[in-house]
Amino acid sequence: MNEQNVLLKAVDIHKSYPQGAGELEILRGISLDIKEGDAFAILGSSGAGKSTLLQIMGTLDRPNKGELYCEGRDLLAMNDEELSKFRNSEMGFVFQFHHLLGEFTALENVMIPCRVGGESIRVAKEKAMHLLEFMGLAERADHYPNQLSGGELQRIAIARALVRHPKILFADEPTGNLDSMNGGKIQELFFRLKEEMKLALVVVTHDLTFAARFPKVYRMKDGLWV
């Protein structure tokens, strides 16, 4: 693929945190292209830097050094407000824990990115309900998080991540908090959604079986590719 097919380009990403009199290096020069239609898993032991890389690629954190572009736009030149608007329209995120808001129903949780993005209640509700129906959760739309199972909660979190039709979906250990049956269902759902919505899919996982289903697998150790 040529450069025009690259959605996100990370170049020589470094990240460290102060530790005592020195610094703790997490990423030590990582480069990666995410292309249209990509699907890959990132593997590595705890502390390898996988989640930190995901957060930087997703503009949830900034590197100490490096470059990050989305379709030619310099993301690191944007201020926090600009990045927030960009993330809300271009990227989706799913984490190990669902992070749903307990005071809102399933439907209301899925609507949140649309409302933050300035869409009307009617449009937000239509989009959210469409995704809940796709995931077989229409009958759970008015339920609150404490009334739902772990698998249902994660599917709702995925719907929330996708409600604005992002180009890239980032997932950090998305099945790590589920039993094997529900974890398998969520894995199937990711691949269905990737095809249906023409997403680029980037997943951090410790699950070797899950990773083996991806056409590409990257491995990290000590903040570098191996």
Rank of each mutant, 00 (worst) to 15 (best):
N146L: 03
R140F: 06
G117S: 08
G92C: 09
I112L: 15
S16N: 12
L53T: 14
G183L: 07
G117N: 07
D61T: 12
Q187S: 13
V110I: 03
V204G: 11
L54I: 15
E82G: 07
C70W: 15
R87Q: 08
P18T: 09
N2D: 09
D142F: 13
F191I: 09
D207A: 10
S89P: 00
E25H: 12
E196R: 01
K167W: 02
G47S: 06
Y218H: 13
L53F: 15
E25R: 05
T52L: 11
E81C: 03
A106N: 05
I56W: 00
I42D: 01
M91K: 03
R115Y: 06
R115M: 13
C114W: 04
G49K: 01
E82Y: 00
L76S: 05
F134K: 09
F210I: 12
E133D: 04
F97G: 05
R62K: 10
K85V: 15
M57H: 06
D179L: 09
N109H: 07
E152C: 10
V110C: 01
T209Q: 07
V204F: 11
A128Y: 10
S84P: 00
V203A: 02
S84T: 14
G151T: 07
E25I: 05
I42P: 05
E23G: 01
K194Q: 15
G92D: 06
L201Y: 07
G184E: 08
K125A: 12
Y17L: 15
E71R: 14
K50H: 08
I30T: 03
G49L: 06
N5C: 10
E81S: 04
K9F: 03
S31K: 02
P145H: 00
A141Y: 08
G118R: 04
D172Y: 02
D12R: 15
I158S: 11
D142E: 15
G37D: 05
K216A: 06
I42E: 06
G118V: 08
G117V: 02
N109S: 10
I112M: 15
A159V: 11
G37F: 03
S120P: 03
L169D: 14
E196S: 02
L8W: 12
Q4T: 12
K125E: 14
D12C: 11
I30E: 01
I112W: 04
W225C: 07
A212V: 00
K216R: 15
K185C: 04
R28N: 12
N2L: 03
I158N: 13
G117T: 04
G72D: 03
H206M: 08
A41D: 07
V94A: 09
D33A: 11
N2V: 08
F104K: 13
R122P: 00
Y144V: 06
D12S: 14
